[in-house]
């Protein structure tokens, strides 16, 4: 029991970070970022390159992951999403663009990093063992703590910094924010870069445990969509709650349902369908229409 809860918290902390980036981008620009999983994979590969190959300190490698994804996110917003949002007749065009970008990033990952599964040496050794009730390697605990720390830092940033306030205003009402003197184009770019950075950060954190490979992008995006739907799209708290709920459900499912085969996600999806009939906007989302 304790083990399942610990696993759930560990999974949930990572999932919440992935969902945070996705929901931030969605809240700011109403764009469903299909490429989010691919950004996560790039973050993993950058950390692998700097930490695993060049033997640099882990934190520096993590910083490089964040930096790469920030720049990448800013460029994507500036040259791809920005112009398309301004010009196209239907807002769905951004989805086509997002899918195209997901393919493009996949191609870039394939060319730059190859298709092999990559792993890095452990950052800390040893296993935490509490009377055989909770057994968890120290590196997982460290990653979990780092993830929760990043989430707290992110929320603090959104709540109290000038940029965070501008971003929240933008998410609430784009036109009103513009009338109040928020530079909409600039803050859209910053927001997108921030969302991409979160994906890169969690990719860099997780490469130490699960490793990284080319095929992880799509499934990661799908999990992120699930979390966002549970919590409510475009709401920061919703993403965090959704992430932790999915992490917990997965941990419980793996513990309870494993005897019936790999049906955890099937059960989660059916549960989600029932949940959505009662509450289509998710837990924290605002009802529309």
């Amino acid at each position: 029991m304790e083990q399942v809860v610990a696993n759930g918290i560990y999974l949930g902390s990572q999932y919440a970070m992935i969902a945070l980036g996705l929901t931030l981008i969605f809240a700011l620009m109403n764009v469903l970022n299909f490429a989010h999983g691919q950004m996560y994979v790039i973050g993993g590969f950058v950390t692998y390159t700097f930490y695993g190959q060049f033997q640099m300190p882990f934190l520096l490698a993590l910083l490089m992951s964040c930096l790469t994804l920030t720049v990448l996110g800013a460029l994507i917003e500036k040259f791809l999403f920005g112009p398309v949002i301004r010009r196209s007749a239907r807002e769905e065009s951004t989805m086509l663009l997002a899918a195209g970008i997901a393919f493009l990033l996949d191609a870039i990952i394939l060319l730059v990093f190859g298709e092999k599964q990559r792993g890095v040496p452990k950052i800390v050794d040893g296993v935490f063992n509490w009377d055989f009730r909770i057994i968890m390697p120290y590196d997982r605990i460290l990653i979990c703590a780092l993830a929760i720390l990043s989430i707290v830092a992110f929320i603090t940033f959104m709540q109290f910094s000038r940029t965070g306030r501008a971003l929240r205003a933008l998410a609430q009402d784009r036109d009103a924010a513009q009338l109040m003197g928020v530079n909409v184009n600039r803050y859209s770019m910053i927001g997108f870069a921030l969302g991409a950075m979160l994906a890169g950060l969690v990719g860099g954190l997780l490469v130490t445990i699960t490793g990284v490979n080319l095929g992880m992008g799509g499934p990661t995006s799908i999990k992120a969509f699930l979390m966002v739907m549970i919590g409510g799209a475009g709401v920061i708290s919703g993403a965090i709650v959704g992430g932790f709920i999915l992490g917990m459900l997965e941990a419980v499912g793996l513990a309870v349902l494993s005897q019936y085969g790999d049906i955890t996600y099937l059960v989660i999806f059916v549960a989600l369908m029932i949940f959505l009939t009662i509450r289509p906007q998710g837990l924290m989302g605002k009802p529309w229409g």
């Binding site: 969605f26 989805m95 969509f225 699930l226 966002v228 739907m229 799209a233 289509p280």
Partner: peptide
Amino acid sequence: LKGVYFAMITLV
């Protein structure tokens, strides 16, 4: 569900 929400759930 509408818009992006419907898109997400069909993808899932």
